[in-house]
């Protein structure tokens, strides 16, 4: 499970795609999302998937995208089966399930290559309220901490005789109660200390805080953004101009 979850977590990698302005990465990801969502033929989906895998290769994240696909494969099969039950043709069901995978890749391209700090900058540049941005970044920041807490609590309860892996699904869920209660209590205590630390470091002192890092788009960022926009427009034109499956 950790192997799969690791596919979604950001890691610093030196690649041309990682070093792009996060807003440009968001633009590319959004364009790929729309193109994946509106693709209606096998050929179109194959081309979109091919482009995304090329980007993943440039960004040196092919393996991690692979993990994301492993994680999503179950859902994809589920979509395929549901569509078959809904009396869709084999081809249509396959298109729906592959489209789902394409959408997952388009979003994970952004999240795997963008640090939480950059995400914060993107949210700030979208003029989201400061509290919303801070809540988001703090939540992301504390994911590893809570994971570690959970592992320690599970180990502690196991050492006291709790057999988490035994029994049927209902029994296993019940056995998670002695893990969840201390985890929630820990988190509540932690949130109290966080609130104190925020107050002690002048959180909310001014309505418009400044930022250590200022992101400015370079010539390369602008070129990549313009290129992706042109390709996006051409793709949309093809979709509209040739509505029948290619």
């Amino acid at each position: 499970m950790y192997w799969v979850a690791g596919g979604f977590i950001f890691r610093r990698v030196g690649s041309p795609f990682h070093s792009l302005d996060p807003r440009v990465k968001l633009l590319i990801s959004a364009e790929l999302f729309v193109v994946s969502l509106t693709a209606y033929s096998v050929t179109q989906l194959a081309v979109v998937m091919g482009v995304m895998l090329c980007i993943a290769a440039v960004a040196k994240i092919l393996k991690r995208v692979g993990r994301t696909l492993v994680f999503s494969a179950g859902f994809s099969v589920f979509i395929f089966v549901i569509n078959l039950f809904a009396r869709q043709s084999l081809l249509t069901s396959a298109i729906y399930s592959v489209r789902f995978l394409a959408i997952i890749i388009s979003t994970s391209l952004f999240f795997i290559t963008t640090s939480p700090d950059e995400l914060e900058q993107v949210m700030k540049s979208a003029h989201l309220p400061r509290d919303v941005v801070f809540a988001f970044t703090t939540a992301v920041r504390f994911i590893p901490v809570l994971m570690l807490d959970a592992i320690q609590i599970v180990d502690a309860q196991k050492s006291r005789g709790l057999e988490v892996e035994k029994g049927n699904l209902i029994k296993r869920v019940r056995k998670m109660v002695p893990v969840l209660i201390p985890l929630v209590v820990n988190s509540v205590i932690r949130s109290g200390e966080l609130a104190e630390a925020m107050e002690s470091r002048a959180y909310g002192a001014v309505p418009r805080p400044t930022s250590l890092n200022r992101y400015s788009s370079s010539k390369r960022d602008k070129l990549v953004a313009a290129g992706s926009l042109i390709l996006f427009i051409i793709t949309v034109y093809i979709y509209v101009r040739f509505p029948t499956p290619l």
Binding site: P116, T137, M198
Partner: peptide
Amino acid sequence: LLFQNPENQIFMF
């Protein structure tokens, strides 16, 4: 103020 557990006063990534 430096708290007992520094983990709880580091906010950023």
